[in-house]
């Protein structure tokens, strides 16, 4: 119970903190580039609370995927707000490029045939 209450409160506090910090310098109401980009890209909700939740979600998924805590921080910082919102809750469905062969034997034959036919390209030798 305490935990479920804690999070929204934390988000609100962080959002308030962020909102104060986003406009640079602190005493200007300039329309900045993040706002301009968001507006033209996806008409996304410019809600920093949402963004913090996305951050939290992506972070925990990455942790479950075995990425180290220090790397996660780095990697999330490399993402734009728009990208974060885009992948929130989606990571488990996104394709991950690997390229090594994971084929099960039973369908190996099918793929060899498809490779020969030029439909797929799993075995470079064919």
């Amino acid at each position: 119970m305490i935990n479920t209450l804690k999070k929204p409160v934390m988000y609100t506090m962080m959002a308030a903190f962020l909102a104060g910090g986003i406009a640079a310098p602190a005493t200007a109401d300039i329309v900045d580039n993040k706002q301009l980009a968001m507006q033209s890209e996806l008409q996304m909700q410019r809600d920093s609370v949402l963004n913090l939740m996305a951050r939290d979600d992506v972070q925990s998924t990455m942790m479950a995927y075995g990425i180290s805590a220090t790397d996660i921080e780095n990697r999330i910082n490399n993402l734009t707000e728009a990208e974060l919102l885009q992948i929130q809750g989606q990571l488990d469905q996104l394709p991950a490029g690997e390229g090594a062969l994971g084929a099960v034997l039973t369908i190996l034959l099918i793929f060899i045939l498809l490779d020969i036919a030029g439909v797929t390209d799993i075995f470079p030798g064919i």
Partner: peptide, 14 residues
Amino acid sequence: VPGRQGSFQIEMVA
């Protein structure tokens, strides 16, 4: 991404 044995497009770009 160890858990997926691969990499995401969005992170490649980032």
